[in-house]
């Protein structure tokens, strides 16, 4: 076991972990941040997607000890994020979620997509979200929501840092 300090959603949290523990498990089990969901634990489904140093990252494919000293943002840390807020509204209006299990990872990836570029076509959005599985919606509402959010945020988004 080792004690590490993780910067999570702007707060430094000290936690004792085994080196083998994934960041996803530590966020969920030790820090009670359960908005990061686990759908496959091998990097394919995208449900656990979070941000590490501003980059979308599979929380199941990074050890907590690797994340020490890096800036971690989970869905819980995006309550007041303006781009996430726009996405949330459009997800709601476009019926872009059903069971809700994929939703946190989907939102984080969609936000990442918007922050990096302006997806102008449906194809861009679909490829950008290809690593985020949704088993309920068939993606149509999600794609509509992201395109609508892209439209709305084009003028307000800050360029990639």
């Amino acid at each position: 076991m080792r004690t590490i300090t993780l910067s999570v959603n702007g707060e430094d949290l000290t936690v004792t972990v085994e080196p083998r523990e994934s960041l996803a498990d530590v966020l969920r089990e030790r820090l009670d941040l359960t908005g990061t969901h686990l759908g496959c634990e091998h990097g394919v489904c995208g449900a656990c997607t979070i941000e590490v140093d501003g980059k979308a990252t599979r929380a199941c494919l990074i050890l907590a000890v690797m994340a020490e000293g890096r800036r971690i943002t989970t869905i819980e840390g995006l309550r007041d994020d303006p781009v996430a807020a726009v996405l949330r509204r459009h997800f709601h209006e476009q019926h872009a979620l059903q069971c809700g299990f994929c939703t946190p990872g989907m939102l984080i990836m969609a936000r990442d997509l918007l922050n990096r570029s302006t997806p102008s076509s449906e194809k861009d959005v679909r490829e950008g979200l290809a690593g985020q599985m949704c088993r309920c919606t068939g993606y149509a509402g999600i794609v509509r929501a992201v395109l609508a959010a892209a439209d709305e945020t084009t003028s307000t988004r800050s360029p990639t840092p």
Binding site: T34, G35, R88, F91, H92, L97, G100, F101, T103, L107
Partner: peptide
């Protein structure tokens, strides 16, 4: 009607079995 269920999931505040402590 837009769904009542959405708000909690959009915040990552849904409560699934594995979230129970």
């Amino acid at each position: 009607l837009l769904r009542k269920e959405d708000a909690r999931h959009l915040l990552g505040a849904g409560a699934f079995v594995a979230d129970l402590k």
